[in-house]
């Protein structure tokens, strides 16, 4: 693999949040470098507050890095050409409550530049794929969390993206739906789609990721192929991040 096949590339990226008076409050990402290669499923793992979501938002162009360089398809993340090849599933389903499932998908299809006939066909196809064809005409405001999540996933895929960014993709899903999502991600990757995902659920990440990076306090503490870890991802993760729970809980457990 060479640099030209890097779909996502971060070099020495830093992100410092500031207060109203521009005083630094927290350094969420500290000198992070990573690359996601074409066709792989890359997992960004780490405890809460480790900088995963901030990193994802910088890759999506929703946040500007304080230092360093972020490239998406070799372009700045806010370039329209880069965004044309991007699909994004946020951590929670932020849907327009007045729209039906079908309207939601057609809205995002329109934003991705799909023509009307193609958008219609793609919408029908995706609603069937996520199992919501029967409720396509219902407003999503009345959907359960799991159903809303499926609509969001379909919305992320509607523009036929080359890179799919998933922020906690199985969050809020029941075990059956979780398995479906994992199967879907594997199938998409098998068809050549590049996937960048974050997850708290290490077992899920272990199932779908080719390569993972573990973040802690905004820094990369480990990176490697899942197949080459030589141990379970959970053990590897705890060894790198540190299992403080026994020490912290000891006074309460007697």
């Amino acid at each position: 693999m060479n640099d030209s096949e890097d779909i996502v590339r971060l070099e020495s990226v830093e992100k410092t949040f500031r207060d109203f008076w521009l005083r630094p409050t927290v350094k969420a990402v500290d000198g992070l470098s990573l690359s996601v290669r074409k066709g792989e499923v890359f997992g960004l793992l780490g405890p809460n507050g480790s900088g995963k979501s901030t990193t994802i938002k910088m890759i999506l162009g929703l946040l500007s890095p304080s230092a360093g360089d972020v490239r998406l398809f070799g372009l700045p993340p806010r370039a329209i050409e880069a965004r044309r090849k991007l699909g994004y599933l946020p951590e929670l389903s932020y849907l327009h409550p007045f729209l039906t499932a079908k309207e939601t998908l057609r809205y995002y299809a329109g934003l991705c530049g799909l023509k009307s006939a193609e958008a219609k066909e793609r919408t029908t196809q995706l609603l069937e794929m996520v199992g919501l064809a029967d409720v396509a005409g219902r407003p999503v405001g009345g959907f359960s969390k799991g159903m809303a999540r499926r609509v969001s996933l379909a919305s992320a895929l509607v523009g036929r993206p080359e890179l799919l960014v998933l922020d906690e993709p199985t969050s809020g899903l029941d075990p059956v739906s979780t398995k479906e999502v994992k199967t879907l991600v594997k199938a998409l990757a098998a068809n050549g789609m590049t996937v960048l995902t974050t997850s708290h659920l290490l077992a899920d990440a272990e199932d779908i990721c080719d390569r993972v990076m573990i973040l802690d306090h905004g820094k990369s503490v480990a990176e490697g192929r899942v197949s080459e870890l030589g141990t379970s991802l959970e053990d590897f993760f705890l060894a790198k991040v540190g299992d403080a729970s026994e020490f912290r809980l000891a006074p309460f457990l007697g």
């Binding site: 999506l60 929703l62 329209i80 050409e81 994004y88 946020p90 932020y94 327009h96 991705c112």
Partner: peptide
């Protein structure tokens, strides 16, 4: 505030 805007912002829209 409802975080819906980011879903539009990441699309190829001016």
């Amino acid at each position: 505030a409802a975080k819906r805007l980011q879903l539009t912002m990441v699309r190829p829209v001016n």
